[in-house]
């Protein structure tokens, strides 16, 4: 399985002269990074895939299942119920393109759910499931959404926390 490395941070030369000797090289290096690192890649929290999971929380803490449920149910934020159905008696219009979310927390571990939300294409390149925490390798993203993931790291954690309650 692929492991994501933490993207290299951009280090500018110090003013105190410690790196003066290598300044031209540093500038070239900085230029190269600007050219090849996706512009907003640095905005995303780096994560590590282990097997078919991202075991560690993106934020370092547990999400809030109550907020997570609200995100899942919101058609403009989580978008989940467009394709999935689930235990949402208040919503009559749920999709059936993707599996029912009921029992998701029993079928998958927290880390497995996290990777499937972050970027399910890491597991199945042909999946219809959108990547919810990715900004690179996308085509013709509308200006409003450019360089922004569908969900923030905190929102991903909230959704993971909610799905884990669906046993």
């Amino acid at each position: 399985m692929t492991r994501r490395k933490r993207p290299p941070s951009l280090t500018l030369p110090h003013k105190d002269g410690r790196t003066r000797g290598s300044r031209p090289l540093c500038l070239i290096a900085a230029f190269a990074l600007f050219s090849f690192v996706p512009r907003a890649g640095a905005q995303l929290v780096p994560y590590t895939i282990v097997g078919d999971a991202i075991p560690a929380s993106l934020t370092g803490s547990k999400g809030d299942p109550v907020r997570g449920r609200a995100i899942v149910a919101n058609r403009n934020v989580g978008l989940c119920l467009l394709c999935h159905s689930g235990p949402f008696p208040e919503d009559r219009f749920q999709g059936n393109i993707a599996p029912d979310l009921s029992g998701a927390g029993a079928r998958w571990s927290e880390g497995q759910l996290r990777l499937r939300i972050v970027d399910a294409s890491k597991l199945n390149p042909n999946t219809i499931m959108p990547p919810f925490y990715r900004v690179g390798g996308l085509t013709r993203v509308a200006t409003t959404y450019r360089d922004k993931p569908v969900l923030t790291a905190a929102q991903v954690e909230d959704v993971v926390a909610y799905l884990m309650t669906l046993k």
Binding site: S121, P130, V141, V150
Partner: peptide, 19 residues
């Protein structure tokens, strides 16, 4: 294409008839 990374075909060839 797009932030949701969908193709037209994924819905209209592969999933027509679903909800």
């Amino acid at each position: 294409q797009g932030q949701l990374n969908l193709s037209c075909a994924q819905c209209h060839d592969d999933n027509w008839g679903k909800r």
